[in-house]
């Protein structure tokens, strides 16, 4: 199968993820969309690895997974503590950075 198709899929997934981040308010959903974007990147990286015939892409994909795992830990912790203090998981409620 042509590896280019994987790239199309990856961009599609990335676009879905990005749209989700931009339009959804629920923090959990936004969070999942970010994961989706990360995984789209992973997919693309693996596809590139295949296309160019070296392992660089796959190694980077591993790194990405590690980072994503760390991010999930921190991110979920923030969401949980936000929910505890505000009783809501909406990202708009946490507009504390506004001046």
């Amino acid at each position: 199968m042509n590896p280019v198709n994987y790239l199309y899929l990856a961009s599609l997934l990335f676009a879905i993820g990005a749209t989700g981040v931009l339009i959804r308010r629920n923090a959990i959903v936004v969070f999942m969309c970010i994961e989706l974007m990360l995984n789209a990147c992973n997919l693309a990286l693996v596809a590139f690895s295949r296309m160019h015939g070296n392992l660089d892409g796959q190694i980077i994909a591993f790194f990405t997974m590690v980072v994503a795992a760390a991010e999930v830990v921190v991110g979920l912790a923030i969401i949980v503590s936000l929910f505890r203090s505000r009783h809501s998981a909406s990202v708009d409620d946490a507009s504390l950075m506004k001046l």
């Binding site: 990005a18 981040v21 931009l22 339009i23 308010r25 936004v30 990202v91 708009d92 946490a94 507009s95 504390l96 950075m97 506004k98 001046l99």
Partner: peptide
């Protein structure tokens, strides 16, 4: 310019994108 800083994570994300 300060007004742009509205505190909504989504709008920051838009500008990033």
């Amino acid at each position: 310019l300060r007004k742009l800083q509205n505190g909504y994570a989504r709008s920051y994300a838009v500008s990033m994108f």
